[in-house]
Simulated scan of single mutants.
Amino acid sequence: MSETKQLDVTIMGREFRVACPVDEEDALLEAVGFVDRKMREIRDSGNVMGIDKVAIMAALNIAHEFMNTRVTGGLDVADFRRRIGRMQQTVEDALKEQQQLF
């Protein structure tokens, strides 16, 4: 197991303390910067009021971007997730059939 540490981060001027594996600190800080930028973009657009709504809109935008991201080499993440889901269902169906044999 990797060692964890507590980090103080700031998003939209608010301080948060988060636990993070030591070897993932840089990735976490990059994510914090990304979330902070997204939230500021939404707030600065003037269409959303309140920090809670800004956070929800940022989360939705980030999730949408993630689900529609194509990784280098043409990998469609959303399609990949659908394929994994179908494979998982196939495995579960096969296991049910096997359990009926016993």
Rank of each mutant, 00 (worst) to 15 (best):
T72S: 15
M67S: 04
G73A: 09
D36P: 03
V91W: 01
Q98S: 00
D76L: 05
R14D: 15
C20R: 05
M87L: 12
T4G: 03
D93H: 07
G46Y: 09
M67T: 12
D36Y: 01
D93G: 00
D8G: 03
L28I: 02
A63N: 01
I42L: 07
R17S: 13
E65T: 06
L95N: 06
F80S: 09
A27M: 08
M1S: 15
E41H: 06
V54R: 08
V77F: 10
I42Q: 08
G33Q: 08
Q99T: 04
F34C: 10
H64K: 06
A59G: 15
L101D: 12
I42Y: 03
A19I: 02
R82K: 10
T90A: 13
I84H: 09
F66L: 14
R40M: 09
G13T: 13
R81C: 13
Q99R: 14
G13I: 13
L7N: 11
D8H: 05
A31E: 02
F80G: 07
D76Q: 05
E92Q: 00
R81P: 00
I84Y: 14
L28Y: 00
F66K: 01
R17D: 08
V48Q: 02
G74I: 11
D8I: 11
I42A: 08
A78W: 01
E25M: 12
R43V: 05
M39N: 05
I42W: 06
G46Q: 11
G50S: 14
